[in-house]
Amino acid sequence: MKENVFKKIDWLVLPLIGVAAVLILWQISCATWAKDLPTPHKTWETSKPYIVEPFAKRGEMDQGILRFTWYSLILVAKGYALALIIGTPVGFFLGLSKTFTKIFDPLIQVLRPVSPLAWLPLGLVLFMGAGKNASELGALFTIAVCSMWPTVLNTAVGVRAIPQDYLNVAKVLKLSRTKTLFKVLIPASLPYMFTGFRLSLGIAWLVIVAAEMLTGRPGVGGFLWQEYNSLIYEHIILCIVTIGVVGFILDRLMSVVERRFKTI
């Protein structure tokens, strides 16, 4: 009986135990080796105005945490959209053509591990002529370039994995290229594509922080960097937690969508 009750609520209790353990470790660290680290309580006190009024706007770099998150999400959405718009067709070509793969695969494998911190300066240089928009365009470039690869590679794998039977149907019916694409190739590789989309979103969100930190744009990442420079360390932790929670929610949402397409 007792065991049953515990089984029912352990999905809530067990994660809370984990959180409590981290809080205790944190508290101990503050007291011992990390004297500059704000305590959990102090962090909460200092962050409170940003959490209870999440959409407040007191100044360019002094806004509620969700307002900052919103800015970041918009930037991510744009960069991510760009990544999908470019990455999906590239993936399709890679999947369809062996020659295309031979030409571009080595290049992709080399570019893929390059860190966003390395891409961003290049992005800024590329769009230097854009004046006021340079930082936004540079950030978008970085997000798109870094988050594109999972979409490219998974789409390519998905297209290569299309069973010959489906292609034979298209051949026997002499379907036009567009029809083959929309009735056979895309539906058949959709599950793989969505796996790519989900991984790409994770990376896009990872990159936003670096992009904002370096460009000083308003957003969670920009706020984090500014507060570090203003010695308000509590807000660093607030930002980290926010970034983590938002990333988690995005991943959950995408995996729901992904699972919907897996059933086909």
Binding site: D165, Y166, N168, V169, V172, K174, L175, K183, I264
Partner: peptide
């Protein structure tokens, strides 16, 4: 291949994302 030769494949080869109606309509 061409539609002048209708073929019933050994493993059916229906497109799994289309309904019965849509498979034949295609």
């Amino acid at each position: 291949p061409g539609p002048d030769r209708g073929i019933v494949f050994q493993n059916y080869s229906l497109l799994p994302w289309l309904t019965v109606f849509e498979n034949i309509l295609l």
